[in-house]
Amino acid sequence: MAKRRIGSLLVGLLIGLSTGVFLGWGPFPVEYRNSPLSALAPRYQEEYTLMVAEGYQVDRDIEAALERLRPLGKPNTIDYVIELTERYISQSNIPAIPVMVALVEALIGPENLPAIMQLYRPTPTPAPATQG
């Protein structure tokens, strides 16, 4: 009698545990609502990075751009931006390439810009002539 009850309990536990794990990891996982930027899906992270690069075109403040990218939580933000830019180049993402290259150039300096990115550098604006 006791063996039968213990057996049933163990069988129930096993089935319940399996069901709970299946539900908790599958159809009903924890739903996060206060997530950091680092938890964004990759496509949103890339979009966010592109927006920051476009913002850099507006304010030319590289410190502010880096500050905006930091919450993405990448181990090396600069490497991440370079990788993303290279990916955009390989995908011929024409609208995104010049702004991303400009950001990379500002981050690592024009002399360190990879050769492939040199092709996409925006034409430098000639310095205004000074008088007197």
């Binding site: 129930g12 096993l14 319940g16 545990l17 399996s18 069901t19 709970g20 794990v21 908790g24």
Partner: peptide, 10 residues
């Protein structure tokens, strides 16, 4: 057992 297992699993 089922209830306990489900609770522990979740």
């Amino acid at each position: 057992g089922l209830a306990l297992g489900l609770a522990v699993g979740l």
